[in-house]
Amino acid sequence: MLINETRHSYRHFMETEVSTELQRLSQLLQQSWKMVRTPRMKTVLKVQNVACDAMRDYLKSEDFIELLPPIIGPVTDPGIRGAKQVTFDYYGREYKVMSSAILYKQAAMSGLGKIFFMSPNIRLEPLDSTLTGRHLTEFVQLDLEIAEANYFDAMSVAEKLLCEAVNVVRDSCAKELEELGRRIPAISPPFKKLTYDEALEYLRRVGLKVRYGVEIPWYGEHLLSKLVGEPFFIIDYPRGARGFYDREDDNRPGILRDFDLIYPEGFGEAASGAEREFRYERVLARMRENGEDPRKYAWYLEMLREGIPPSAGFGIGVERLTRFLCGLDSVIEARLCPKVAGIHSP
């Protein structure tokens, strides 16, 4: 039954024309500033506020330090699945707007140990991202990094962080959730961990073939997210599927020590994280593998050559979390004046 239903929604996903969806969204967003006046959006943003406070409180109780996030720099995170970075002229040189704070996170961690940013990110996503309900070109991540930690430590923080947000919201936003008609499923750590291979096998059994070595496509994640029925991690992605900073397992060549956290109920990816590759030569080779010009990353490579501690961390998207907590169709409802790929809106 469930499988038939997901098959149907998958087909719908594939058949929806990107251009039709763009047209619909474009109309919807022309007066996006008015959305914030609707009772529904007021409620959603209230829940978002409570969730952010809950996560901040939790992390501070665990001795994390919140830093103000850098927004621009000579380079930024290239591991953004085909999205385009924003480049601008900075006194005669090309600079980037942060697509994620990953590079600065490692720098901050090397000084302060356990840190996090509420980091605004810009990614000019491909137009088919408009079909997913969870892609904005401008969004905020709670982005954290832990010195001397491995990816299991990071996953442990991630699951507690999510549970904390859910519990606090459930307790203090009962009225809001009722208004939204939302019942958040009960969740508790530890979350299930599927390896990448197992996830592919799972999908294969319901009839979706994914090529080994690439990230699980959006609709695949959506399917898994519906089928598993609780939040879970996909771990151990193969090399090639992720950014150059995800660390390869020394004992299992080709396997990365990284993870994605997936929401249940079809809400898809919540967070993405990894243990970091901090060895200079390895990073250099991996950059080449990703078709990157190492010259571009001069400051970062210099930092690695001088040496930084091993670390692990992840980023969890605030609008996606809000979408899950409130049961929204799209992250568009979780942000003031949302920006969507290919649409010129206020």
Binding site: R81, G82, G213, R239, G240, A241, A285, E289
Partner: peptide, 22 residues
């Protein structure tokens, strides 16, 4: 000219499949 070893080439192909699936 670009630097290649089998892992780098393999990685590049996977990256392309990953980032530009269509």
């Amino acid at each position: 000219p670009g630097t290649y070893v089998p892992e780098i080439l393999r990685g590049m192909v996977r990256l392309m499949r990953n980032n530009y699936p269509r």
